[in-house]
Design a protein around this nucleic acid. Structure first.
Lengths: 357, 357
DNA sequence: TTGTAGGCGTTATCAC
DNA sequence: GTGATAACGCCTACAA
């Protein structure tokens, strides 16, 4: 009989009306108290807040979103859960949002889902002011992109298509960085350089990185050999350890090479495992290079030579560009950052040269 | 002047009424068409769906959630983004939900956020039927847990507190598995076994794993030495490569040991790096063991000896238990699965013994 | 089979 | 400062 106030109200179903009634005020006053409106008596506000606390009242977000003109919020759509490379960018993005006093909604997108459809839904639902896309190969028809009625920025992705000029994007120059890495391997004396890359149909960073590789070879008058290219399976998990492992095994079966350039650090780590199992030592008998600059590559043994993407800078620039676009201060632009070639333990001079001595 | 139908309607702001008007029908008919209600003329439905398509109408989820009594949905709250161990469980969970035709909302929780507050909000907003908690140390006061008015299951976590009996939980027996690993290291002849573990104040799996370690030592009459215990910093990122690396460096400075038991695979990998830099070879001079059975440990060189948690089984059981609880067929229960000791390359007999020969 | 109207829980706009 | 009240966009009786 004693215990809870009133007669056992189902606390979970409290509404703003109930709180108003308990405090003997109107609903609008409660609303004002919750939303930090200025014109409210501090004492009334205090009473209301205490009551809210006491009854564990939680306002209904759906009703809020429905009524609100626009919330001070953006969303980050991440394609590819478990890609730890994105985690760092997301952290940076969240930090920037906090600074600007925006809330940042993190939304995962499954590999087979369409990020645009999800974007359309969530914009409406949350009354978003902007969007950031992370991951995915992003080759959507122009008309569909135009349905997005809020500013958006692609982060660390870029489409290889023609009309890419109209999208705001922040990333490294995947072609150039890939060229850089290939050139580095060539300078080490490697001529047979295998590559692990995206599925053939990829039109995004995967394609750009492959093109950078090919161009570097061509500029050295070395023919690009199809047998040295390991394409991922479009349906399987893409940039994973397992994929790197399998592709390397297959490559090893049909050809040989003195260096292997994996277009992500995860792929590179998988490759090292496959090489070890084949009794090939890295880097003495085969050099391995990655891409991204993930923490895992730094701790791996041997640590992985890679192109480090400046994630903090990219995150910061992405957020700033988006906020400027929201304010109307900016138009969609493409920002390019310089990657950094990190020479680590997994690469060395080609042993073919040494054997000459 | 030509082009878009009607006079340049802002497509993003279309409502169900607009669609109804365009089709010359009532809103309820449109609603019925969208929600696959049976009692509707197929031809009317077709017309409506075509119009929706044409105008890229997207229904407002907030309004839907507001009206709906309950949606067929659950949420998974994950604390600790970038913990790849959770990714696998999440995948399994999503698969199970699909089977049951439930939708599964993935919600990240920041390290400093309170998962319970988020849970309370999202339950109301999405009218959830159930919840799954992944990660976090979960030591909430009982009264607060009771505010959750839908069934929930803790997955791969368990509180070390007293009244843990009342929560539904699915996991391995962290104490026992930890005991098992320590015993294994002891059997290899190691006596000075360092451990990398959660912050002192941890009341969750971290504590349980430490207790398992201590018990195994005690049972062998080996005293537990505080100097061999590396506690994480509660404020920093916890189960990370970096943490493993730093703790090991510190341990190395003040003491010596022939084996190191890291209570996660990520910690173990960080530890291996630190040992390598100290010129200590793994496993010849120091064995290293992890916990979890993550993919990264399998690909690492040397591959990491670990306790593999049966993630698929845990995911499946978690989902099933939750759905049974939702249906009222089950009460909160604790399900325990057996971990598997995976002997890999990072552990070996103690060299102290070898040197005797 | 279809349309009308009321209400879900908020916030915003008024008067007071 | 405060309290009614009208939206917000959708779903769902109920009536036709």
């Amino acid at each position: 009989m004693e215990g809870f106030p009133e007669k056992g109200i189902k606390m979970g179903n409290m509404t703003i009306k109930d709180i108003a009634k308990k405090c003997g005020v109107g609903v609008s006053t409660v609303s004002r108290a919750m939303n930090n409106h200025p014109d409210i008596n501090p004492k009334t506000k205090e009473l209301i807040m205490k009551t809210i606390e006491e009854f564990n009242y939680v306002p209904n977000n759906s009703a809020r979103n429905l009524k609100r003109i626009q919330s001070k919020a953006i969303a980050v759509l991440v394609k590819g859960i478990g890609n730890t490379f994105f985690s760092d960018i997301v952290s940076g993005l969240e930090r920037e949002c906090q600074k600007k006093n925006y809330s940042c909604i993190l939304q995962h997108v499954e590999e087979q889902e369409d990020e645009l459809d999800i974007a359309l839904h969530i914009i409406k639902e949350k009354k978003l002011q902007g969007l950031i896309f992370l991951g995915g190969s992003f080759s959507h028809p122009k008309e569909k992109m135009e349905q997005l009625e809020v500013p958006y920025v692609l982060s660390t992705i870029r489409t290889a298509g023609e009309n890419c000029e109209q999208y705001a994007a922040v990333s490294v120059d995947d072609f150039k960085e890939s060229y850089k890495m290939t050139e580095y391997l060539l300078q080490l004396g490697h001529e047979r350089i295998a590559i692990l890359t995206a599925p053939k149909e990829d039109e995004s960073i995967g394609k750009l990185r492959l093109m950078g590789y090919a161009q570097a070879l061509k500029d050295k008058k070395i023919p690009v050999q199809e047998e040295l290219i390991g394409y991922m399976d479009a349906k399987k998990d893409r940039y994973s350890f397992q994929t790197g492992y399998k592709l390397t095994k297959e490559l090893l079966k049909k050809t040989d090479f003195t260096a292997l350039y994996a277009t992500s650090d995860t792929l590179a780590i998988g490759a090292c495992r496959a090489l070890k199992e084949a009794g090939i030592s890295v880097p003495d008998e085969c050099s391995v290079a990655g891409f991204d600059g993930m923490e895992a590559g730094e701790f791996y043994i041997p640590s992985i030579t890679t192109i480090r993407q400046p994630v903090e800078k990219i995150a910061k620039a992405t957020a700033e560009l988006l906020f400027d676009m929201i304010k109307g201060k900016e138009v969609p632009r493409q920002l390019v950052f310089e990657g950094e070639l990190l020479e680590r333990e997994s690469t060395a001079f080609s042993s073919c040269h040494e054997s000459v001595k």
